[in-house]
Design a protein around this nucleic acid. Structure first.
Lengths: 165, 165
DNA sequence: TTACCTGCAAAAAATTTGCATGCAT
DNA sequence: ATGCATGCAAATTTTTTGCAGGTAA
């Protein structure tokens, strides 16, 4: 944690930016919620707990800055708000998203399945890939299991009823 | 074209919606610009040419409706506006996007490269895929060629200068 | 100092909603 | 007449910007 903050601090300083207390608090919130996909408003409210006098605009400006430095990635899952994902130490993101249309959860797959597709693109389409994004919409394992459990339950119920009648 | 309008009309009527002149004009604009990725505002301005008294809210409502019926897909490319993509006749979209970070062009690849990944997801992650989205950010062939041409030009220029001196 | 940073408030941009009216069945 | 649809304007939501003051090298 401290090491990653240090690294981000260096990155900022290389470009003559400062890691101000507000920026550090923002980065800490992002690190502490790395698996979530927080909106600017989410980040703002979490930062406010530690740093009540911060303004929303500062959070926006910080996220914008971190986005330019490729420390975070600005994403849109189609719900009208931008969400921010921390990138890994090499400023790469090798994950894909599994978006559950039932419960809204966003899970991640930490593998990169697209390397050979990127090569294919360079070769066949003359497109130089700098980054990619892969999202799947569907039903997550938890919702599937819940549904299966319900179906089992219904089945048992009807068995009981059959026995009764 | 007329056949596809007819199909959409049927889809609407199945759900007790009407294909009003405003809605038809909107759908026609989408069909005529199928390869583009129009924003609501874009659609509004194009529809206004044929149907000057239409309101922006109606366009939004129509796009929302078409989106619910899976006639169009609402997409976000991260520039703050929602864009709308017509789906094919089976309400599937088998395309991926090539987004040029230089000129902003959005090209499409009309193949589906993810079928075996979707199988893998079902198998290994117990995730039921309903839809997916694959975008690549990078530099398109046109910008690459332009850059290459410029480099050739620079090279020739310096040769001339070398000859002169 | 100088240039960066901040909070606040106002502005801008995108989208949604309320409402009176219109139109088809 | 009933209920869906519309245009307009107002409201909401998300994000950006202007500005006056603060701060650290």
């Amino acid at each position: 944690m401290e090491a990653r903050i240090e690294k981000i601090k260096q990155l900022l300083q290389e470009q003559a930016y400062k890691l101000t207390p507000q920026r550090e608090a923002t980065v800490r919130v992002l690190l502490e919620n790395e698996q979530d996909h927080l909106s600017a408003e989410d980040v703002f409210m979490l930062v406010k707990d530690k740093f009540p006098e911060i303004g929303l605009a500062t959070v926006y400006r910080t996220l914008e800055l971190l986005s330019e430095l490729h420390v975070v990635e600005k994403m849109n899952f189609g719900d009208g708000v931008a969400r921010y994902d921390l990138r890994d130490d090499n400023n790469h993101h090798h994950h894909h998203h599994l978006i559950c249309v039932q419960c809204g959860a966003v899970d991640e797959i930490m593998e990169d399945w697209l390397i050979h597709l990127e090569e294919k693109l360079a070769r066949e389409y003359n497109f130089k890939v700098l980054d990619h994004r892969l999202d799947f919409q569907g039903i997550c394992n938890r919702c599937l299991e819940k549904k299966q459990a319900e179906m089992r339950q219904n089945c048992e119920d009807s068995t009981v009823q059959n026995n009764r009648s």
